[in-house]
Write a protein that binds this DNA or RNA. Structure first.
Length: 530
RNA sequence: GGGCCGCUAGCUCAAUCUGGCAGAGCAACGGGCUUUUAACCCGGAGGUUCAGGGUUCGAUUCCCUGGCGGCCCA
């Protein structure tokens, strides 16, 4: 990249239109870039490396504030510091220049007096561009207005920026650019940095809590021979050397439970899963799941675990369990109500339904409530549709929705009190599924039957249903201890805690269509292949 | 997949409704300024108005097609 930029310097500075016909030309701020490249050339000609190798600093911005925010306004100290960061703002007053430097911890002001540093250093500082990375040395002071500053003695350019920063007040707001060029978004938008800081804290907090509770973190394959563990359409790929079709995983579940068969009593994985479905404000092509499995536990233990994980993440990340999403305030503090799905449906519709009811009767119930359904759905699917249409969107505060119809939950064990149901819950907050958990099915014969039911659906054209995972059944035949399993969508949890409404705000590089202007990549290769 | 909306200077936005020389702020450039905080003051620049086609004497504006994005729905 730097070579290309160097080569382009002459052209760009020369007439600025030499490569104007190129597909990417619309993205080049040519004039500004050419000026900055000329500065790089001038620096090199003067013997200064615009991209030197390293810099030793003594303090971060945050450390400086922590140590010296208390000093008197207008006071100067003899404390020597070396700080480094990106120059964000410059306020030149002739013989005195103020700069705003930002590092990974915050900002610190630079105070550059011509009388102190001399014409040469002051001139070089004024010649910096916003966006440049610099390292500075100087002493700690505070201005008359009370701004903690480094009184600069000298500085070194650490990396020259060739492209201008977005507007300093409004920042970068174009959504497309923010996602495609997340690096610029992170430079320009405090909120982007805030949201991702929350994301990193959420993941770290979950790891800490689970490890504290005796869970072992594992890594299982992303490439599977057989999709399973969720109802979703997988991405298909191909292993050339093995001459085998493979799919990208849609869930972590089946491998983690194999590990419980192997005797690992508490395991978890935080991993990427891939689902080949449409994009929306709540769906990204790839997203991050936490799944945790605990031997000798059931789904009620998973409810407690869910409450612990979610409330502790909120406390760590935002200092409390009250979050605000889209103008609605939600209290996440435990305990959360535990409500059977069939009761909730009755409350919201006045209709008492049950999976043992004849399909025709359930269809009449849905018709009467104006809920669409498809021919061929069984009673479980009809009831789930009732719930998803009439109940889920109305839930705001956290609720554990418990006890799902058996036919829509092929990996959950039959309910201890009602064989038409399974011991499963989803934690629902703000109308969205946050967690999904079961008392896991560990009867291999029952599991095989459920897989066969799914295989029939798949054979009938259901792209989200999958066939029999024979190795998984074989594993169960060695004995899976009774266990509870929990899945939490990390992205959705971060959305909730950060108070954002689209999943793309919590994914660093969300999936987008290819950028315009970078199309027709095969043209250069010579189009002799079909 | 459907409906609606958007795309104008590096960035943030006007002008579009009702067709008539495309503007401002920031950034950049020149000048001034030794305690600024989005510094300020003065000056001069900067445009494939997403792309292609159509209507028109004339299109950023109206129409069509396409691209990318957003919101809502499926």
């Amino acid at each position: 990249m730097s070579d290309g930029a160097g080569d382009g310097a002459g052209d760009g500075a020369g007439d600025g239109t030499g490569d104007g016909a190129g597909g990417g030309a619309a993205f080049e701020p040519r004039d500004e870039r050419a000026r900055r490249i000329a500065k790089v050339d001038a620096l090199r000609a003067a013997g200064t490396d615009p991209y030197p190798v390293r810099f030793d600093r003594t303090h971060t911005a945050a450390e400086m504030h922590e140590q010296w925010d208390g000093i008197e306004d207008g006071s100067e100290t003899t404390h020597e510091v070396r700080v480094a960061g990106r120059l964000l703002l410059k306020r030149s007053q002739g013989k005195l220049t103020f700069g705003t430097l930002r590092d990974g911890t915050g900002t610190i002001q630079l105070f550059v007096s011509r009388a102190e540093v001399g014409d040469s250093v002051h001139g070089a500082f004024d010649d910096l561009d916003l966006g440049d990375w610099i390292g500075v040395s100087g002493t700690v002071m505070k201005t008359r207005k009370g701004e903690l500053s480094v009184k600069l003695r000298d500085f070194v350019l650490l990396a020259k920026a060739l492209r201008p920063l977005p507007e300093k007040w409004h920042g970068l707001t174009d959504v497309d650019t923010r996602f495609r060029q997340r690096y610029v978004d992170l430079i320009a938008n405090d909120d982007a940095r805030r949201v991702f800081a929350i994301r990193f804290d959420v993941v770290a907090t979950i790891r800490r809590l689970l490890v504290e509770q005796g869970f072992v973190e594992v890594e299982t394959p992303v490439l599977h021979e057989q999709a399973g563990g969720a109802a979703a359409k997988p991405f298909e790929t191909y292993h050339n050397a093995l001459d085998t079709p493979l799919v990208l995983r849609i869930a972590l579940e089946l491998h983690l439970k194999r590990l419980l068969v192997g005797g690992m009593e508490r395991v978890f994985e935080i991993g990427r899963v891939f689902r080949n479905e449409g994009l929306s404000t709540r769906h990204n092509t790839e997203f991050t799941m936490l799944e945790a499995y605990q031997a000798f536990a059931d789904y009620t233990d998973m409810m407690t675990l869910t409450e612990t994980l979610v409330t502790e993440c909120a406390r760590v990340c935002i200092g409390g369990t009250t979050v605000e999403v889209d103008g609605t305030t939600i209290d996440l503090s435990a305990p959360w109500p535990r409500r059977p799905m069939l009761d909730l449906i009755e409350e919201h519709s006045g209709q008492r339904v049950h999976p043992t009811m004849p399909v025709e009767e359930l269809e009449r119930v849905l018709d009467g409530l104006d809920v669409d359904h498809k021919p061929g759905w069984d009673s479980g699917q009809l009831i789930l549709e009732l719930y998803e249409k009439l109940v889920e969107p109305k839930i705001t505060a956290p609720v554990f929705v418990c006890d799902y119809p058996r036919s829509v939950s092929p990996l959950a064990r039959v309910h201890r009190e009602d064989p038409a149901l399974v011991e499963r819950f989803e934690a629902v907050v703000f109308g969205r599924e946050l967690a999904n958990a079961f008392s896991e099915l560990n009867d291999p014969i029952d599991q095989l039957g459920r897989f066969e039911d799914q295989a029939k659906l798949a054979a009938a054209g259901d792209e989200e249903a999958h066939g029999v995972d024979a190795d998984y059944v074989r594993a169960l035949e060695y004995g899976l201890p009774p266990c509870g399993g929990l899945g939490i969508g990390i992205d959705r949890l971060v959305m909730l805690i950060a108070g954002v409404t689209t999943i793309r705000e919590v994914i660093l590089f969300p999936h987008l269509r290819p950028e315009a202007g970078h199309d027709e990549p095969t043209e250069v290769e010579g189009g002799d292949n079909s």
